[in-house]
């Protein structure tokens, strides 16, 4: 796997609370890597370098890595807010700086792609599904979701 992509997935797992296999299962990793790189290009390389350092320093210890990310990557003021935008992207399928831009026209502003909407992790986290996709079947709504049964 491409080094940047592997790093991006590793970092994304820490940012989203979904493991790498779950993230790969969305099929969105490369699209999102590109969206992040193009989203804030002047911060991108420095951000990836810092991410690599943080993950190395974390040494596979989840709590320690989390604390390092919280301090060195996640604050909105760092790297143009890349870490928060990447997290939101995985959850919603949207690149927030585009969708929330002042003057963005609600009637026309788009998700990163149709698949990005469908693969939004917020629906999985909520034990639901994206409206209009991944439909769980007749009468499923009358019972507990499969993910908590």
């Amino acid at each position: 796997m491409d080094h940047d992509l592997a790093l991006f997935l590793d970092l994304s797992a820490h940012l989203t609370g979904f493991d790498v296999v779950e993230l790969q299962g969305t099929g969105m990793a490369e699209t999102y890597l590109n969206a992040a790189a193009m989203g804030i290009p002047k911060e991108w390389r420095a951000f990836l370098d810092r991410a690599a350092m943080v993950l190395r320093e974390g040494g596979g210890d989840a709590a320690r890595t989390h604390a390092l990310i919280a301090r060195e990557l996640f604050p909105k003021a760092l790297f143009g807010g890349l870490a928060q935008n990447i997290t939101f992207m995985w959850y919603s399928g949207q690149w927030a700086p585009t969708v929330d831009a002042s003057g963005a026209d609600l009637a026309t502003v788009t998700n990163i792609s149709a698949q990005a909407y469908v693969q939004g992790l917020m629906w999985t986290a909520a034990h639901a599904h994206p409206p209009g996709a991944k439909q769980p079947g007749f009468a499923s709504w009358a019972q507990l979701p499969v993910s908590v049964r």
């Binding site: 609370g17 979904f18 909520a126």
Partner: peptide
Amino acid sequence: FGRDLRHRIGDVVP
């Protein structure tokens, strides 16, 4: 972010 975020969404939205 991370597990905390996933737990928050899993707690509030449902």
